[in-house]
Nucleic acid binder design. Sequence first.
DNA 1: ACAAAAGTGTTTGTGGTACACCCATGC
DNA 2: GCATGGGTGTACCACAAACACTTTTGT
Lengths: 238, 238
Amino acid sequence: MDYDKYAHEPFAVTVDLAVLTIAEGALHALLVERGQEPYAGHWALPGGFVHPDESAETAARRELAEETGLSDLSGLHLEQLRTYSEPDRDPRMRVVSVAFAALLPDPPEPHGGSDAAEARWVPYDKAGPLAFDHDRILADAHERVGARLEYTCLATAFCPSEFTLGELQQVYETVWGTTLDRPNFRRKVLATPGFVEAVPGAARLTGGRGKPAALYRAGPAATLHPPLLRPSPEGRPA
Amino acid sequence: MDYDKYAHEPFAVTVDLAVLTIAEGALHALLVERGQEPYAGHWALPGGFVHPDESAETAARRELAEETGLSDLSGLHLEQLRTYSEPDRDPRMRVVSVAFAALLPDPPEPHGGSDAAEARWVPYDKAGPLAFDHDRILADAHERVGARLEYTCLATAFCPSEFTLGELQQVYETVWGTTLDRPNFRRKVLATPGFVEAVPGAARLTGGRGKPAALYRAGPAATLHPPLLRPSPEGRPA
DNA sequence: ACAAAAGTGTTTGTGGTACACCCATGC
DNA sequence: GCATGGGTGTACCACAAACACTTTTGT
């Protein structure tokens, strides 16, 4: 280790955000159209350089606000995914990128911003091919979120502050691509202390028709014990 | 984004390794005594700067070999933990560190090496206080490994290529700090397809006394379905 | 009346827990 | 024989899957 800051080829450190939401019953990712080379005109994950006085987490929130014009980041759940450091992942120079997975309820309309020509919610299946190694980052984020739904209370981060159990269930079904039994899901969630809290007296129509659903808020718990396992990913009827 | 590599204050990118093993029935971490400022004479996690042509993963293996003289890294399991990027975490300059959790079976004796005055296996409970934010990294690694034991086949990475079920159980008990019911553990492991494979005919004495135990190898599976949950971390009798 | 969505009840089976018990080896 | 550690069998309990059924709303 030496002390000369300029002795080595410098590294740049960036953040990339895989921002997910649920709209019209389908998983969507937030993408920006790049305004500059390399990959100008291609779609990419929002992100950018970490400033000298910022942590990666701080930079992630700032970049998201700048590039997409999203102002209400209060409901934003940010989670570090992993760091991508292959030497050739950016053609310009050596760039190490800290990737984040982020979840938003009630997708607001992005505006496009500083470095991005345009920002848009794109259905997850139709998102790609993306610039750099962003296809892989987005896929890693999806996998990670799916896994974390099983044993954490993460699902509430996809929902607005007050939500119905049907909406919560839709989060699981959308991310996992499965269907769940409604009565059993309901029991599981309500039996887990601290997962959700009933909003007294409140109810809301969901599909326009049908019985109004009771409303819930996210509870204080962070982890699920026991976990809410998804139906056997392998052929095993688990 | 601009293209002038030297426009900003440069970042340095390092790796830090929380290398864990089980020795004498207790969890141990691999620590080095720092030979240079800052924190000269203090204990720290092994690690160092990422070279311009390396990924963080490559750098992690190289640094571990250099600093500890460990030559046989074949059984080494490396897993990215997270990236620590607080602006003031290193007093010299802006250093972003990619942390890894690593597991080794059968702890070999480290030699001390290039930048480290000495390298040594230290019982996990007695490891600290460490230099920089390494106490936190080590704690995060422990927590992560404990969680991943539940739903991945990670435990075999703590074991030599051939091991007994008793040894595998000791991995769980040591990392979790609990005791498990032997018959039930055995059934769980054998019922999970691809977790372990029997070595035909082989057996070994373990404690010097007792019935020789059958030997197993790590199987092809990577994840555990259903998971092997640890006894209720909260008071709940799960 | 009918459809749609929320919510309740019940049955059935699997899997985990907690044991008791048998086997093989060293001393 | 006894201690020690490996391995098998079993009874009980809890939970979860599956599905029938009731309730409340809009059209």
